[in-house]
């Protein structure tokens, strides 16, 4: 099978790549575009470490084909900070020690950002269910939930 030529937008930048028809978006990001911030923890959509958004929808990039990105807008962890300014979620994760090893952190940040865009004032339970697809083995989630809440409060201007 021939490789496919794909034109897409990644973190706002026009991007072109070729990929095999069966190649995942995660492999494209990591191996072809050097965007290794998205991690592969399972390759089966169970851990969420590869979370990105495609046209604003939160997905596991290991379950999306690279070819599906054609004409779409993809957002990854690399696009979350604006220059030197961290997104409030990123800052609150650091300030609240919401990461230990940090390997799940990019996926959790991308997922939490998608939550706050839909629901700027979530309850703890809503955060816990939204992030249920993002596994963290170090923190026990406690400080993650608190960091999302404090970032949400800041973003609401509270």
């Amino acid at each position: 099978m021939k490789n496919i030529h794909v034109s897409t937008t990644i973190n706002g930048d026009p991007t072109e790549f070729i990929c095999a028809p069966d190649e995942s978006l995660l492999d494209v990001l990591r191996d072809r575009l050097g965007l290794t911030g998205s991690k592969e923890g399972c390759g089966s959509g169970d851990c969420g470490a590869c979370s990105v958004t495609v046209n604003g929808r939160l997905v596991c990039s290991c379950l999306v084909l690279g070819a599906e990105a054609d004409g779409a807008a993809v957002e990854t962890i690399e696009g979350m900070a604006q220059g030197e300014t961290l997104h409030p979620l990123q800052q609150h994760f650091i300030d609240g020690a919401a990461l230990q090893c940090g390997v799940c952190t990019p996926g959790i940040l991308v997922a939490a950002k998608a939550l706050l865009e839909k629901n700027p004032n979530p309850t703890d339970t809503e955060i816990r269910y939204w992030l249920a697809g993002n596994l963290c083995r170090c923190t026990g989630y406690d400080k993650i939930i608190k960091a999302v809440q404090s970032a949400a409060a800041e973003m609401r201007g509270a």
Binding site: T36, G37, Q90, I94, T105, P106
Partner: peptide, 21 residues
């Protein structure tokens, strides 16, 4: 005290390099 960890920014921006990176 509870200062920010030195590897914090690398880890929240996806820049930190792990085994497979």
């Amino acid at each position: 005290t509870r200062p920010a960890r030195p590897d914090g920014i690398d880890k929240v921006t996806g820049r930190a390099l792990y085994g497979a990176d």
